[in-house]
């Protein structure tokens, strides 16, 4: 198991969310997700109620990972921006720092240029926040899950997973 556990606190997530919602207002996109490269959803903003964001996060992380391999095969380190164009909705994905992906879903009310501009600007700001999270977690105490978490999970699992 990797040791670099990602622990995000309320203060930081508020900062991240305000940056993303500012971006959404600016570029008039429908919604945005911040996804960990491992496929975990960090946060979401905008009209995401009709979306299965958990699955989206996993698939987008997978898509980004496979694109990275493609990049490697053609001699690039990584493609930092991905764009999927649909009939009505489009998706813009960009790299944030080293471990996150900013996904913006938008329609024809705005343009790819605007989304790209604002996403780039936001990605830089977000990278700074993640940098701070990383530094704090390196120097500060590392709270983990409580000791009886596994035991309590056990009881729940027995209830849920019944043949």
């Amino acid at each position: 198991m990797s040791d670099d556990n990602l622990i995000i606190y309320e203060e930081e997530i508020n900062q991240i969310e305000s940056l993303i919602s500012k971006m959404l207002k600016g570029c008039e996109a429908k919604c945005a997700l911040l996804v960990d490269k491992d496929g975990h959803l960090t946060t979401r903003q905008g009209f995401t109620h009709s979306l299965d964001t958990t699955a989206l996060a996993a698939l987008m992380a997978g898509s980004f990972a496979s694109t990275k391999e493609i990049a490697r095969l053609v001699g690039e380190t990584e493609f930092s921006v991905l764009f999927h164009q649909g009939k009505k909705d489009h998706i813009h994905m960009s790299l944030v720092g080293e471990r996150s992906i900013l996904v913006v879903i938008f329609d024809d009310r705005t343009t790819i240029g605007m989304v790209r501009l604002y996403a780039k600007e936001t990605a830089i700001e977000l990278a700074k926040v993640f940098d701070k999270i990383k530094k704090d977690s390196e120097s500060g105490p590392k709270p983990g899950i409580s000791t009886d978490f596994a035991t309590m999970a056990q009881d729940k699992l027995d209830d849920i997973f019944q043949d």
């Binding site: 198991m1 670099d4 556990n5 990602l6 622990i7 995000i8 997530i13 960990d36 946060t43 899950i145």
Partner: peptide
């Protein structure tokens, strides 16, 4: 990497 989000109170 166990992801812990204290804001949404999730362990992933």
């Amino acid at each position: 990497m166990v992801s812990i989000n204290y804001s949404s109170r999730e362990v992933c």
